[in-house]
C-alpha cells in the first residue's frame, strides 16, 4: 500500500476547515498519511519530499472563483522543482456556496497543471457548503464523502465525488445567515453592522 502526503493549500492553513477535512481523511484512510501546511517558506522542502509518496492529496478552499494565491504560488514552485518520482495527485476542494459546481474552474486549472507537468490525476472531491458543514447536523455528508475519498485513494480506485448540504437554496440562505450572524457576534458585531453598504467608510 502506498503512502499519502496531504498538503493544505488554505491561506489560514493552521486554523482552516481544510485542516479539519484533512484530519477526517487521515482518520478514515487505511494507508499511511502525512500532513503538511503549505507556507511561504516550505515550498522547496515539500517539493523534494513528494517523491517519497505514491499519492498527494491537495486540500484547499475556493478563493475568488479559483485557486487561492498561496496555493497557486506553490504550484509554480512545484513546476520549477518537480520531484524525481511523480505521485498521483488527488484533490479535495471546498467552497462556501451551496453548489459544489462552483469549484469546477479550479478543478479545470488543476487538471491543466497536472497535464502540463505530467502528473496523473487521482480522485477529486468537490464539496459545497464547506465553510460551515462540519458544525451542522450535515457533518455526516462531509465525513461520509471524505471517507469515500480516502478509500478510493488508498485502493487506487480513483473517483470523482461531489457533495453538499441536502438543502434548498432558500433554506441554505437562511442557515448561512444564522451562521454568519453568530460569527459576527463572537466579535461583538451585529447583523446590521455586518450589512453595512460602506466600503472603507464610504458609501
Amino acid at each position: 500500500m502506498g503512502k499519502i502526503m496531504i498538503l493544505n493549500g488554505s491561506p489560514r492553513a493552521p486554523k482552516s476547515n481544510s485542516k479539519r477535512y484533512a484530519e477526517i481523511f487521515s482518520k478514515y484512510c487505511t494507508a499511511e498519511t502525512e500532513y503538511y501546511n503549505i507556507t511561504k517558506k516550505n515550498h522547496l522542502e515539500l517539493c523534494a519530499k513528494m517523491e517519497d509518496y505514491s499519492d498527494v492529496l491537495f486540500v484547499f478552499p475556493l478563493y475568488a472563483d479559483s485557486l487561492p494565491v498561496v496555493f497557486l504560488n506553490f504550484l509554480k514552485t512545484l513546476e520549477a522543482n518537480p520531484p524525481r518520482r511523480k505521485p498521483v495527485i488527488s484533490i479535495l476542494i471546498n467552497c462556501g456556496f451551496l453548489e459544489y459546481q462552483q469549484n469546477k474552474v479550479a478543478i479545470r486549472m488543476m487538471k491543466f497543471f497536472c497535464h502540463q507537468n505530467h502528473y496523473i490525476i487521482g480522485s477529486i472531491l468537490m464539496l459545497g457548503s464547506g465553510e460551515a458543514i462540519l458544525d451542522t447536523p450535515f457533518r455526516y455528508v462531509a465525513t461520509r464523502n471524505i471517507r469515500k475519498l480516502a478509500q478510493s485513494i488508498a485502493s487506487k480506485n480513483y473517483q470523482l465525488i461531489r457533495a453538499t448540504m441536502p438543502l434548498t437554496k432558500k433554506l441554505f440562505l437562511m442557515a448561512s445567515t444564522i451562521y454568519w450572524k453568530r460569527f459576527g457576534q463572537k466579535f461583538g458585531t451585529t447583523k446590521e453592522q455586518m450589512q453595512t453598504m460602506e466600503i472603507e467608510g464610504e458609501n
Binding site: K186, F187, T196, E198, G201
Partner: peptide, 8 residues
C-alpha cells in the same frame, strides 16, 4: 472584513 470591521 465581514465580521470584525465590516467593509474594511
Amino acid at each position: 472584513c465581514w465580521t470584525k470591521t465590516p467593509g474594511k
